[in-house]
Amino acid sequence: MHLDHVQGYATAEIRRDYTIAMDALPALQTAATSAIPAMLTTTIDPQVIRVRFTPTKAAEIFGEQKKGDWLQDTVMFPVVEHTGEVSSYGDYANNGMVGVNMNWPQRQNYLYQTISEYGERELGRAGLAGINLVAEKDEAAANVMGRFENSIYFFGVAGLQNYGLLNDPALPASLTPATKAAGGTGWQTTGGAPNATANEVYNDALALFTQLVAQTGGLISAEDEMVLAMSPSSAVALGFINQFNLKVRDALKAEFPRLEVVTAVQYGKQSAANPQGVVAGNMMQLIAKTIDGQPTGYMAFSEKMRSHNLVTEMSSYKKKWSGGAWGAVIRIPYAVASMVGI
């Protein structure tokens, strides 16, 4: 029976009996209903969304090698320099000599660790939501350790002979960019607008290459393999176009056919959003991969990740993870040129 718009109904016997009131309901014996349980109208998406972090690029910029293991505290790198002199020839002359000068620069190992732990009830409750908590915590350990290792590769460890690509004391002093027509030395304004022309950006990169040629005594040519490292925001300027509709990136590729551009946030200016940045401003480095057949350097680790024993408690579990790093081993410091303030 459908009685649309009917607000009240009375039988024939009482419809004219105005002593009967029909404007109230009897008192409820149960609590007022508030609808069905919310869980019945809630669905959990089986696809887990993971928070992403800035990429780790140190190994991509400089390469990576394993040296030693977690039992060693120090690694030595033999350096040999040939010495000698010649003299005028004489049948009975004994002048002239050659020699070898040896150095043993060192790096110290820094071992670090983290611990993952989880309870039985915790695992079960996470499973109700479709989350494999053990796998997620194992992945978190790998992520945390990898990011810490990346920081060591860039900055080393204070108090140890363990230096990074950005602060090794053996690196040559950084250049200052040329002053731009719009003012200042930066390629972009604080808001991100262009502050330099395409030609000015190209000339800064060319000045860095000129410095690299001078530092290496001409051992570097434009055809050699090189890496140009800068922040992602600075790399945007490589898309600036000059009056001939030529991008900076294309001009660099034409002049340096084996040049590779790699970005890392550590080259950006230090700020609240980028605490690992450079205090002095946006930075870039031009790195020759090899000098006369010898690798310029590499990032070195003693242990990438060591999984220790799983410890079983009464109703929980925990595991230690450890790793070790020597920092950036820059074998030929003069093969790296830097510029700060772009």
Results as ranks from 00 to 15, higher is better:
K137H: 10
E136V: 02
S307Y: 10
V79N: 14
L128T: 06
L25I: 08
Q270I: 14
G192A: 14
P275S: 01
A337Q: 11
D204R: 04
T197V: 11
A178K: 08
H2A: 09
E225L: 11
L160V: 04
T190F: 12
K57A: 03
A140H: 10
R125Y: 07
K253P: 02
R107A: 04
A207G: 10
I44A: 13
E120C: 04
R306F: 09
P169K: 10
T30A: 14
I291P: 00
Q285L: 10
A300D: 05
A35H: 08
V340K: 12
G130Y: 09
R125I: 07
A59R: 09
D292K: 12
M339H: 09
T296L: 02
N162T: 10
S315H: 15
N132E: 14
L208S: 00
G96C: 02
P26H: 11
L219H: 08
R107M: 03
G239W: 00
G119D: 02
E81Y: 11
D4K: 11
V340R: 12
A325Q: 06
Q266L: 03
A288N: 01
Q106G: 07
T30K: 14
I44Q: 13
G164I: 04
G63S: 02
R50G: 08
R331G: 02
D17T: 03
G156F: 05
L166R: 15
T179F: 05
W326T: 08
T33G: 14
K289C: 05
W321A: 03
M102S: 10
I20T: 00
P37F: 06
E313G: 15
V201D: 00
L310D: 07
Y317A: 11
D69A: 09
T74G: 05
P177Q: 04
P177Y: 02
V236G: 04
G293A: 06
L252T: 07
V79T: 14
K318Y: 14
V80N: 14
I287E: 03
P275F: 01
G192C: 12
P169D: 09
L71N: 13
L128H: 09
A300E: 04
V134N: 04
L133P: 01
A182P: 13
Y110S: 02
Q211D: 15
E149A: 15
P295V: 06
S116I: 13
D4G: 11
D224W: 02
I131P: 00
A181Q: 11
I61C: 03
T114A: 06
I20A: 03
I49T: 08
E120F: 07
D23S: 12
L3R: 13
A264C: 11
G268C: 07
E136I: 01
A158K: 12
L219A: 14
K269L: 15
V261S: 00
A24Q: 11
I49P: 00
L259N: 10
S307H: 09
N101S: 15
Y118I: 07
G341Y: 13
Q243L: 12
E60K: 12
G68P: 03
N167D: 15
N199C: 04
G323S: 15
E120P: 00
T56Y: 01
